[in-house]
Structures are given as structure tokens and as C-alpha cells.
Design a protein around this nucleic acid. Structure first.
Lengths: 143, 143
DNA sequence: GTAAGATGTTTGCGAACTCAAGTATATCCG
DNA sequence: CGGATATACTTGAGTTCGCAAACATCTTAC
């Protein structure tokens, strides 16, 4: 119940920081982050949308922005011509590194810093049970 | 970290249920709920905005909708002519009761049902430390 | 009492999303 | 093969919200 409120406030605060200092939404940031972690630094839009909890169309529009900024680029999939990969560019990688400093600091201040290591572990394991995983790898051939 | 995702998914799911069955946003619902709990069933917009974690303008627009639907009505404050109270109507109260069934069921399914009473208590106390309280009472004279 | 500032609310504009519909491919089944 | 269905993505319309600016009203200080 108060859960909703807590999160809404956190998110907004973190996002505001990122926007102010780097011009990135929290969702932009997360997308860059997922791309950076993905093999070959590319992901299908569908997979991206699952991980960031956004609609397909939401991803399209979000990527529009990141593409214009030059942080990601489009790439075709050799085995399925329907898919349009999003690939992290060098510029995007650098941007992510810069932004991560701000973001991690923010997280620490608002979140991590308020709990002990034990509490964090507890919290994390409890939250992990909620319906919001983030699996799938996003290789080209879905088979 | 995964925290963000967890919540985003939860919120959307709960909100979707409410919208589908009662035409209420999760924010609409929360506003009605806070009004129902307030003495005299009325609150200033400012206070409302704090509790729901929305901007003043957000509240104005949200209330527009609830007013048109007849769930809340405007009321003047006798001691400060700047404030415009939002007061829960009988219709609003009834709507809230109906919606709460759906909503509580949803909460239970997605949230409460996944934890034991102990875990819930732990979780709640941890989350309570985050910057998102909800105090203030909202009487007319701020003094 | 009056100018200066604080507070409560609304409004114009724009950003970020969702939903529904449309297009292009893939896949499956007869 | 050929049509039905499913999947990946894009687009148009509409909603919800924040920010900044505009008002109106209180409050404070001189």
C-alpha cells in the first residue's frame, strides 16, 4: 500500500537527477544498461520491452530518441527479417558510463544508504518473489 | 535495482484491473481512498498531492475527471479563499467500496499472497524508511 | 496600510506512454 | 504450395502527467 507511494517517489527523484545531468530518462538509462550487458551489445525490441516493462510501441519511441542522440543504432537480423535489433554504439557506452556515476550515487543516497547489508539482502530476496523477472537472452533465432 | 521493475509491473497490473472493471486509475482510487479516510471526507488539493505523490497540476486534472464522474465535488474553505477542497460524494463513496473489492483482491493476488505475515511486516518496516511518508492532516487553518 | 513574498490552484505546452490498427515476415497445417 | 495464424515492429490518436508561468489570496515587515 505504502509500497506504491515509496516507489513512485523514488523513481521520480532518480529520474529527475538523470534528466537534469545527462538528459536521460530512467528508462533510457535502463535500456542502455541492458544493451551493455547483452552479448554483442544488441537486443531485439521485444526483449527490451519485457525487461524495461514497456509496450512495444513505447520501446519504438524510446529508441527513436536514443537513435537520434547516437547512443544506439539499428541492425538487421540475418535470420528473421522482421526483427530490428537495437545495438549500443560506442557513444552510447560512454554515455552510460557517465550517467551511471550519477545514477549509482542517487541510488545509494535514496536507497542503499538507508539499509544495512543484511536488510538489503532481505529486501532484495523478498522483492525477487514479485512477478517481474527479466530472463530470456534475446538471441536471433527464437528456437 | 530490480526494485524499479517489480513495482512498475505491479502498478500497471493493478491499475489495469481497476480501469477495466471500474474505470478508475490507481491514482483515482487512491485519491478516493484518502478522501474517505479524511475527517469530513474532504481534503485540500495540496495535501492530496502529497499523499498521492503527484504535482499540484496533476491533482487538478485528476480531480477534473472525478468531478465530472460525480465522485467528488468542490467545496470552499471558509477561512482561506485560495483553497478549493475536494469532497467525496455519496456516489464516490459507493464507487470506492465497489472498486476496493477488485483492488484488494488484486493486491492480495500479486502481493500479499506471496508473503507470510512476518515477511510482510519486515517488508513494510523496511519500506517505511524510504522517503515517502504521508503525514499532515489537512485541516483548514494551516496553523 | 502597503509593498514584498509565500502559498493554493489552474492553465499552456510538451514529454512519455498505452491502445488499437496497420504492415511485413514467419510459421504451421491442410 | 497456399491460406490461416502468430510474431516483430511502426504509427496515429488519446491519456496522464510534469514544468513553468499566471492568478488569486494570504502573510509579513516596514
Amino acid at each position: 500500500m505504502r509500497f506504491l507511494r515509496a516507489h513512485a517517489a523514488l523513481t521520480r527523484a532518480l529520474s529527475a537527477d538523470l534528466v537534469a545531468e545527462h538528459g536521460l530518462t530512467i528508462n533510457d538509462y535502463e535500456v542502455l544498461l541492458h544493451l551493455a550487458r547483452a552479448p554483442e551489445k544488441l537486443l531485439r525490441r521485444v526483449d527490451l520491452s519485457e525487461r524495461v516493462v514497456l509496450t512495444a510501441s513505447g520501446i519504438t519511441r524510446l529508441l527513436e530518441g536514443l537513435e537520434q542522440a547516437g547512443y544506439v543504432e539499428r541492425a538487421a537480423c540475418p535470420t528473421d527479417r522482421r526483427v530490428v535489433y537495437a545495438r549500443l554504439t560506442a557513444a552510447g557506452e560512454q554515455k552510460l558510463r557517465q550517467a551511471s556515476r550519477t545514477h549509482l550515487a542517487g541510488i545509494d543516497e535514496l536507497f542503499t544508504g538507508r539499509f544495512s547489508a543484511d536488510e538489503l539482502a532481505t529486501l532484495s530476496s523478498l522483492l525477487a518473489r514479485l512477478p517481474a523477472a527479466g530472463d530470456g537472452d534475446g538471441q536471433c533465432a527464437p528456437e
